[in-house]
């Protein structure tokens, strides 16, 4: 039995090999045929192309191509112009927004700094005013004290010298109009009043 198996397998293998060899040969032949065919086709095609695409046709094609190209270029230019305009407009709008935003921020900061400076100045002025008010009060009190002291001194001086002052004014006012004869009665009266004192003095002196 084994022998038969081995034999069968060998035969299968040979058959398979033959088949493969045939396939490869066929393929190669087909390829050779295809290649030859292709080559023939190519040669034929070239001839036909040479026959169809002559110079005039080529020129025509060239012209059409140029026109189409110009058309495309113009369209693209127009699209580009539109895009540029749109872009420029957008850039302007963006710039405006940014500038506006920046200016708004800066002005807000400036306004804030001015308000702060104003507040500082107001505080400083208020402090200075308070200090000045205190000084004024102190000076007023001192001045009042000095004025009161001076007034008291003047009053004391006047009271101390009132007799001399009034005497002086009497002399200035009526000094030259006072007649001794008018005073005789009063002088005699004074002598009477001091008579005893004068008598005692003369008696003691004698």
């Amino acid at each position: 039995m084994g022998i038969w198996l081995i034999l069968g397998l060998g035969i299968a293998l040979v058959l398979l090999g033959v088949i493969v060899w045939l396939a490869i040969s066929l393929n190669l032949s087909q390829k050779k045929t295809a290649a030859a065919r292709q080559k023939a086709f190519n040669e034929t095609a070239e001839k036909d192309v040479e026959h169809i695409f002559n110079d005039a046709f080529r020129q025509e094609l060239r012209n059409r191509g140029l026109l189409h190209f110009e058309q495309i270029i113009n369209e693209n230019a127009m699209f580009l112009q539109q895009d540029l305009r749109i872009t420029a407009s957008q850039v302007n709008d963006y710039m405006k927004q940014e500038i506006k935003r920046t200016l708004t921020e800066e002005f807000a900061k400036y306004e804030q700094s001015i308000a702060d400076a104003k507040q500082l100045a107001t505080d400083s002025i208020n402090k200075t005013q308070g200090a000045i008010e205190e000084q004024r009060k102190i000076l007023t009190d001192q001045l009042k004290q000095q004025a009161d002291a001076a007034k008291a001194q003047l009053v004391e001086h006047f009271e101390k010298n009132m007799a001399d002052t009034v005497n002086h004014y009497i002399m200035l006012a009526i000094g030259e109009q006072i007649d001794l004869n008018d005073q005789l009665e009063y002088i005699i009266g004074d002598l009477e009043a001091n008579k005893q004192a004068i008598l005692e003095d003369i008696k003691n002196g004698a």
Binding site: I170, Q183, I187, G205
Partner: peptide, 9 residues
């Protein structure tokens, strides 16, 4: 101004 001043010894 007015009146007199009396001086004894």
């Amino acid at each position: 101004a007015a009146g007199c001043v009396i001086r004894t010894s």
